[in-house]
């Protein structure tokens, strides 16, 4: 009696992910033919993982090289069941996978590079929600500015790392205006943003990072600005805030809730 279709499909799925799984009878014909067929399926699956992850993390791919990246993508795909049809969401756990991958331990900044690239990838696909603009802020009673709470725009992400991942990222851009750091040991702070259509990165000084970080955690504006100033007295709201507005870092307030 032939194997039930559901069982055959289960076995096929398992064989795709596990090279040691039994493959006998998965395809008609001699066993060598079956082995060849399943190898093609596995190869295509791994290539799709590699393409999807390489699309999200091109700098990491350049950092580790094609062979290593392809091997990482295959290992990640095998270990992380992806239950969505959208390959753009495949890499949600890739940064922590890379950070904990033993063979890459001599390059401990790679996980944070992947984290930065994943934030850029998510920023690219983030909802195009309305932005907070100067006229909305100017309409607010100055007495209420101090207690104002702002929300980051969906395309905005703050990151910090003990490694110079901003320099590393910029050094790999086509119009590279920074070179690879000779020593990547430097604390970096940055914002991933999408000012118009393109997701990009801007390095932040410690004060500006502290203020934005406080705002993103829900601190009122007065408190956030003070945290920025306490971190670095050079932090100046009169220049920082116009920059934030021009870059569209914040979402427009939900007026129905404000009233």
């Amino acid at each position: 009696m032939p194997e039930a279709l559901a069982d055959l499909q289960q076995r096929f799925g398992a064989a795709l992910l596990d090279p040691d799984a039994p493959t006998a009878g998965l395809f008609r014909g001699p066993s060598q033919h079956t082995a060849h067929c399943i190898a093609l399926y596995r190869g295509n699956l791994a290539a799709n993982w590699g393409k999807a992850l390489g699309n999200a993390c091109p700098v990491l791919r350049t950092l580790v090289g094609e062979d290593c990246f392809a091997a990482l993508a295959r290992q990640y795909g095998r270990c992380h069941a992806h239950d969505e049809g959208d390959l753009n969401t495949l890499g949600g756990g890739f940064a922590s996978f890379v950070a904990n991958f033993e063979a890459l331990a001599p390059y401990p900044y790679l996980g944070d590079v992947a984290r930065l690239e994943w934030a850029l990838h998510r920023s690219h696909y983030a909802l195009d929600a309305p932005r907070l603009d100067a006229s909305q802020l100017a309409a607010i009673d100055p007495a209420r500015i101090e207690t104002l709470q702002l929300r980051l725009h969906p395309a905005t992400t703050l990151l910090t790392s003990p490694w110079a991942i901003d320099d590393i990222w910029f050094a790999h851009q086509p119009a590279a205006d920074r070179s690879l750091p000779a020593d990547p040991r430097r604390t970096s702070r940055m914002v991933v943003l999408r000012p118009a259509w393109r997701a990009t990165v801007r390095s932040l000084a410690a004060g500006e990072y502290a203020a934005l970080d406080a705002l993103s955690c829900g601190a009122p504006l007065g408190e956030a600005l003070e945290q920025g100033f306490d971190t670095d007295p050079r932090f100046d709201p009169a220049t920082a805030i116009p920059g934030w507005l021009a870059e569209g870092l914040f979402a427009a307030p939900n007026l129905s809730q404000e009233n």
């Binding site: 190898a39 190869g43 580790v64 990246f69 290992q75 390059y107 790999h172 690879l180 000779a182 040991r185």
Partner: peptide, 30 residues
Amino acid sequence: CAGQSKADNDPNEWKYVASGTCTEMGGSLK
């Protein structure tokens, strides 16, 4: 489609050796 007709080979240890631009920075780090 990516990888069509690309048969799978079992991963080799050497493939996990990073050989890209990361080798230009800072040597071995912790």
